Computed example of a mutant assay.
Amino acid sequence: MADITRDPSANPRTGAPGDTAEGQSVPGKPRESLIAHVELFFFAYRDFTGDPDAVLAQFGFGRAHHRVLHFVCRNPGLRVANLLEILKITKQSLARVLKQLIGDGFIVQRAGAEDRRERLLYPTAKGTRLADRLMALQVQRVEAALAAAGPEAEAATRQFLLAMISEEDRDQVRTLTRAAGRDDKSGGEDGT
C-alpha cells in the first residue's frame, strides 16, 4: 500500500499544515477522529467490495450488477419499481444492468399476475449461484471483522450502520432486511 502519511495538523482539503477545515489547528480533537473514521470507511468499503469485484469481472459485471442481483435474489418477485426505490438509481441505469443480467441468464422478468404491466424480477439458478458466491465472500469478511472486534461488536455495528442510513429511509431498510429473513434483534425503535 502506498505511503499516504501526512501532517496530522494539515487541513484535509488543502493539505496546509496547521490549517484545519475550520481554519484553526486542532490536532487530536474529535474532527480528526471523525475524518479518520471516514477514511477507515473508504478502506473497509474497498476491501468489502474488492473480493466480489474480482468475481464480477469474470462475467463482465460491476457493482451495479451485484446490487441488482443481490436484492432480486433476496426478494424473488421484486417489482422493478421497488428495485429502483431501493437502489436510488435512474430507470436508464437499471435498464442497462437488467438487460445484461437477463440476457446472460442470471435474472428472469415476468409480468405481474394481477397487473400485466407490472414487471417482477426473479433469479435463475445461475443467478442464485453467483449471488451466493458473492455473498459468501462478504459474509466471511464481516464475520471475521465482528469476531476480531469482540462480543459487543455485532449490536454496535448494526446500530451504527442503521444510523448512517438517511432517517427517512430507515423504516424501509428495516422492513426490507426483515422481509429477507433477517431479524433486527438489536432492540429499540432505532435498532438500539
Rank of each mutant, 00 (worst) to 15 (best):
A2S: 10
D3W: 06
I4K: 13
R6G: 11
R6K: 14
D7L: 02
P8D: 02
P8I: 04
A10C: 06
N11A: 05
R13L: 15
G15T: 09
G15E: 02
E22R: 08
E22K: 06
S25K: 05
G28R: 05
K29Q: 15
K29A: 15
E32K: 05
E32D: 14
V38T: 10
L40W: 11
L40H: 11
A44H: 10
D47R: 00
T49Y: 07
D53M: 04
L56W: 01
A57R: 15
F61S: 04
H65W: 04
H66M: 13
R67H: 14
V72N: 01
V72K: 00
V72E: 01
R74I: 09
R74P: 03
N75I: 07
R79S: 14
V80W: 03
A81S: 12
N82F: 03
L83C: 08
K88I: 13
I89C: 06
K91D: 14
K91P: 10
A95L: 09
R96P: 00
V97G: 00
I102C: 08
G103H: 02
G105N: 06
G105V: 03
G105D: 05
I107E: 00
V108Q: 05
G112P: 05
G112M: 07
D115I: 10
R116Y: 07
R117C: 08
E118A: 04
R119F: 02
Y122A: 05
P123C: 07
A125V: 14
K126D: 14
G127F: 01
D132R: 15
A136E: 15
Q140E: 11
V142E: 12
E143A: 04
A144F: 06
A145M: 11
L146P: 06
L146M: 13
A147H: 10
A148M: 11
A149V: 10
A153K: 00
A153Q: 02
A153C: 03
A155Y: 05
A155H: 13
A156P: 12
A156C: 12
A156L: 15
L162N: 00
A163F: 05
A163R: 09
I165A: 10
S166I: 01
D169E: 14
R170D: 06
Q172W: 11
V173T: 09
R174D: 15
T175E: 14
R178M: 08
A179I: 01
A179H: 04
A180L: 02
A180M: 09
G181D: 02
R182M: 13
S186R: 10
G187M: 08
E189F: 04
